[in-house]
Simulated scan of single mutants.
Amino acid sequence: MWDDLKDSSFTSEAPDPLKEANIYAQLINSDRHYYLESGIERIIADAPWINKAQLISEVVKYYDEAISRIPSFTKFPEAKIWVDYVLTRDKKLMELANLSKQDIAILRSTNDYLTFRGYKQFGIKKKKNDEKCRTVFIVETDHGPMHIKNVDDPITYWKPSPPLPEKAHISKAWWYHKRFIIDGVGSGLHIDDEPEEIFPLPVLQMVNMYAYDTFSAVEFLKKYSMFWGGCNIIIFDRKYNAVAIEKCSRNFFELFQQDELTGSVHVSGMVCRDPSSPQAKYQKEKRTEYMKLFNLPDDGPDACFWNVCDKLEIMLRENLRNLGNKPKSDDIIKLFIAPYPSGLRKDALKLHPQQGLTDYTLMTRCTFFEKKKFLLWQRKSADEGGVYPDSPEICQYE
């Protein structure tokens, strides 16, 4: 186990909706244009034939419908306090940030509306999804259990965090107070079939209240499967039980156990690793539907992007298997920090001549739980040259 906390040290209380509303209100008030207007502006820029007022009207209509579709408390008894939480949080947020009904609808429902209805209704061509990351947990390396992740995104708004302290008390470690860890990567669809349940339950927040280990977390997430999606995740607990879940759509739930050879679990962004699975076939069907809708070529930036995502997944999976049982942690780190195509690190990666923003690995995070050590590689901001470091910051917890 990664610490000596007793079960009684963990709490299972719902978060305070007023506290979260206050935090989010401060963010909105720091840049109201970014949070309340820039998203709609980008959509109109991509599809100037759309009537802005009509688009916003449809988003508001969807929001009203979503929050009115209260899930059955007989079928989903845990949802009751969370429905109250969502409604109270948003009501308080509207007061604190002086938001209109239109504002809160844009904040909460634009993405879901577009994915389930809007892209087809208005004929909006969505820019490619950013597949932010790959993440791995390995039970046994030469330095014990290990978790490592690359965080990928355009560098435009990137600002590195303050440097790590060289030493800190173990209670400050990011994993210390968790029963289990859920770490994920983006894996959404341009167009998805609308599920039966559309109330915006924060399922990945709820699970921390009702689950106590990997197995109970999987059970809870599967029960609430229709309420969440668009991501692939790994879960591992304090006894190092681990699984991976791929969920590009709210309509699917695909579970993967630890690799028999390496004891590892991993996920990659925008990928279904088993092309023969129902979810992978659905993903391909929806991508084909999207490409036909906008007459996109088979060799265009979207198809090229998806192909590279598949290649990165295969690179990760095959390299992990080639390292075998109880691999050297240095070899795993090298895989993550070596620049593409020899490794997984992206340095202004441009996949297609018509691609807009280029992709960067902004940071690599690596944790050795038994060693109580955290390593962090942070790229400099664009203003500072955007350089990826040769060596990591290291914090030893005591």
Results as ranks from 00 to 15, higher is better:
Met1Tyr: 06
Trp2Thr: 05
Leu5Glu: 06
Leu5Cys: 11
Lys6Met: 10
Thr11Asn: 13
Ser12Cys: 10
Glu13Met: 06
Pro17Gln: 07
Glu20Gln: 13
Asn22Gln: 14
Tyr24Lys: 14
Gln26Tyr: 03
Leu27His: 12
Asn29Gln: 10
His33Gly: 05
Tyr34Gly: 01
Glu41Asp: 15
Glu41Lys: 10
Trp49Arg: 09
Asn51Trp: 04
Ser57Ala: 13
Ser68Leu: 06
Pro71Ile: 04
Phe73Lys: 04
Thr74Met: 04
Pro77Thr: 06
Glu78Lys: 08
Ala79Gly: 07
Trp82Arg: 01
Thr88Leu: 03
Thr88Met: 06
Asp90Arg: 07
Leu96Asn: 03
Asp103Ala: 05
Ile104Met: 07
Ser109Cys: 07
Ser109Ala: 15
Asn111Arg: 05
Tyr113Gln: 03
Thr115Gln: 12
Thr115Asp: 04
Gln121Asn: 15
Phe122Ser: 09
Ile124Thr: 10
Ile124Asp: 01
Asn129Phe: 14
Asp130Gln: 08
Glu131Cys: 12
Pro145Ala: 06
Ile148Ala: 08
Ile148Ser: 07
Pro154Leu: 05
Ser161Arg: 13
Pro163Leu: 07
Lys167Thr: 15
Lys167Ala: 14
Ile170Thr: 09
Lys172Ile: 02
Ala173Cys: 11
Phe180Ala: 07
Ile181Gly: 02
Gly184Ala: 11
Val185His: 02
Val185Tyr: 02
Ser187Thr: 02
Ser187Ala: 15
Asp192Ile: 08
Asp192Glu: 15
Pro195Ile: 07
Glu196Leu: 14
Phe199Arg: 03
Pro200Lys: 02
Pro202Ser: 06
Val203Lys: 01
Gln205Phe: 03
Met206Thr: 03
Met209Arg: 14
Asp213Lys: 03
Phe215Glu: 14
Glu219Arg: 10
Gly229Asp: 04
Gly229Met: 03
Asn241Phe: 08
Val243Thr: 07
Phe252Ala: 00
Leu261Trp: 02
Leu261Asn: 08
Val265Leu: 04
Val267Leu: 05
Met270Asp: 08
Ser276Asp: 15
Gln279Gly: 00
Lys284Gly: 00
Glu285Asn: 02
Glu285Gly: 02
Lys286Asp: 01
Lys292Cys: 04
Lys292Thr: 12
Leu293Gln: 13
Asn295Met: 08
Pro297Gln: 03
Pro297Thr: 13
Cys304Met: 14
Phe305Glu: 10
Phe305Thr: 13
Phe305Ala: 09
Cys309Gln: 10
Glu318Asn: 13
Lys326Phe: 05
Pro327His: 02
Asp331Gly: 06
Ile332Met: 01
Ile333Pro: 01
Ile333Trp: 08
Ile333His: 00
Ala338Gly: 02
Gly343Asn: 04
Ala348Phe: 07
Leu349Pro: 01
Lys350Glu: 10
Leu351Ile: 15
Gly356Tyr: 08
Thr358Gly: 00
Tyr360Gly: 02
Thr361Ala: 01
Phe369Thr: 00
Lys371His: 09
Lys371Pro: 00
Lys372Gln: 13
Lys373Cys: 14
Leu375Glu: 11
Leu376Lys: 03
Gln378Glu: 12
Ala382Glu: 11
Asp383Thr: 11
Val387Ser: 00
Tyr388Ala: 09
